[in-house]
Amino acid sequence: MNMKHIIYALLIGLYGVSNAQSMTNYFFDIELLDSGETYSLRLDSTGHAKREYDAFVKYATEYEANDSVRATKWEDRGIGIFIEVAATPDDQGIALSLSFEKAEFLGLTTHDVQGHKVMQPTFGSQNTTTEIRVWLGQWVDFSVIKFRIRKEDPQQAGPGYPPQGVGSPDP
């Protein structure tokens, strides 16, 4: 009986390892429908991939004011594109957990803190956080984005998914 349990546990472990390894050559593609920008992220062995924000704005959220005004608390806000995805294959397809944001810095607006003028940033954001089950290669349309999980094309080395709609800025 004990031997049966050990074998069973080993089989589960081996199945898990083989599943994890199977994600190494997979990619997550996402396209922003309004701009046509496309990003491809290579998944790691656990099915995880992350694209960090392009920059961070550090701004004051609390102030201390008397003769002058002094910031006492700061916060960081990412701007640009953020993507984090976790994919877990199973018998019914791929369970996908996605967090996406396109955050923009819109400018600084004036606020009054006890008679002192301070400027606070304003941000614009398109974002979604979702958990969904997909099939390999299936495009899923959301309102502003579409995405899929695909396996690396053995004919093409590397990510092989050139970005569209972006490039070098005009001179």
Partner: peptide, 19 residues
């Protein structure tokens, strides 16, 4: 000092945005 825009640049197989 103002952040006017974020400009996309291709970097290897990806795209990054620079202020």
């Amino acid at each position: 000092h103002n952040l006017s825009d974020m400009i996309p640049y291709p970097l290897e197989s990806s795209v990054v945005f620079q202020p």
